[in-house]
Amino acid sequence: MLGEGILKGLAETARNFLGSYVGKDRLTTVQYPEERLPQIEAARNFPFLVYDGPDWQQGMRCVSCLICEKECPPKCISIEKSKDKKPDATGKPQFYPAVFNIDVSVCMSCQICVEVCPFEAIKMDVEFELSTDDRFGGLLWNKERLARSNEYYRQIHPTEAAAVDAHLAEDRAKLEAKSKAAAEAKSSATAMVSAQPASGVAAEK
């Protein structure tokens, strides 16, 4: 019968229309901004700089190694390395970025800066309501705008942050153990060298 296919299709639209009142899978839209979908944990938008401790200037993990600036595909990062060293959150003197700018109008959220950073200093944010009417001022983010605490990182990407924290703690423990062992070996070696030169080799091993 001519028109049967159209009737079948109309039955389908009717099913979807009525179904949208009962089934959540037929009505997937929400009334943004009053209503929001839950944040997906792995989501990424623009980068931010992680700092440890309460003071963002002191705790910044970035040591201004310029790797991300070089690897960034659209070249949206611009860093100026500091001339002097300042103590970081653990008290170790480090270089720091005198200037760290990201032009988010150029950034394409590819996450390559995060992947190449050896210091876990740059991570991806999830904030997306960033519209501004100032193309140069509003979209050129300086390091103050980019700095976010590690607590914030833990809050937005809990799984990833936990892995990063564990990894950093492990590194730190290793480093401490190493320096401790080195110091011990040194002190014992000097002690032994004076007493018994032959066993000093074994202690160093």
Binding site: L2, E4, G5, K8, A11, E12, T13, D25
Partner: peptide, 20 residues
């Protein structure tokens, strides 16, 4: 769940006289 959607989608078009 996808095959059910495909069934419905086909129901909507495949025999539709206008589309044909």
């Amino acid at each position: 769940a996808f095959p059910r959607f495909l069934d419905e989608y086909e129901q909507l078009f495949t025999e539709n006289e206008i589309l044909m």
